[in-house]
């Protein structure tokens, strides 16, 4: 079972190297026991990158010993595994900031700046009274 998953990872990693194709393997949909999962984690190991995310509960993403192969683990706030997958990509999409969020961020940073610029006078007024 474990080597089957690893073979699929290898195939997809080749596809990424040769054609730039990304791939995902949903580990929850496979009949893997916790022992199998542990074996798989050990076989893939840990590489250079580890990221902790805090989005509607914790998530952990690490690059395995094989660059381009990422282990993605999404937990609920109750620490239940909501999704667990192996992503074969240069960088998992969830790590990069999405454009709509960037647009909103630019707006809110500008708002903050405006707010920061404005209340200074107000606060001096405030101080006087």
């Amino acid at each position: 079972m474990v080597s089957g998953v690893l073979r699929e990872v290898a195939e997809r990693l080749e596809a990424l190297a040769e054609r730039g194709e990304c791939g995902v393997i949903d580990l929850k949909s496979l009949p893997l026991s916790s022992v199998h999962l542990q074996q798989l984690r050990e076989r893939l190991g840990r590489g250079e990158v580890t990221a902790q995310l805090e989005i509607l509960g914790p998530s952990e993403i690490w690059e395995t010993r094989y660059p381009g192969v990422w282990w993605v683990r999404h937990l609920d706030v109750t620490d239940r595994v909501a999704a667990e997958r192996i992503e074969i990509t240069r960088v998992p999409d969830i790590l990069s900031a999405a454009l709509p969020d960037v647009v909103t961020a630019a707006q809110s940073l500008n708002d903050d700046l405006a707010l920061y610029a404005a209340p200074r006078r107000e606060s001096t007024d405030h101080g006087r009274t």
């Binding site: 995310l53 989005i55 509607l56 998530s59 993605v72 999404h74 909501a82 999704a83 997958r85 999409d93 969830i94 999405a98 709509p100 969020d101």
Partner: peptide, 11 residues
């Protein structure tokens, strides 16, 4: 964030 939606979509 959109990341939240991505996580939800994975789920």
């Amino acid at each position: 964030s959109r990341r939240g939606l991505l996580k939800y979509a994975a789920y």
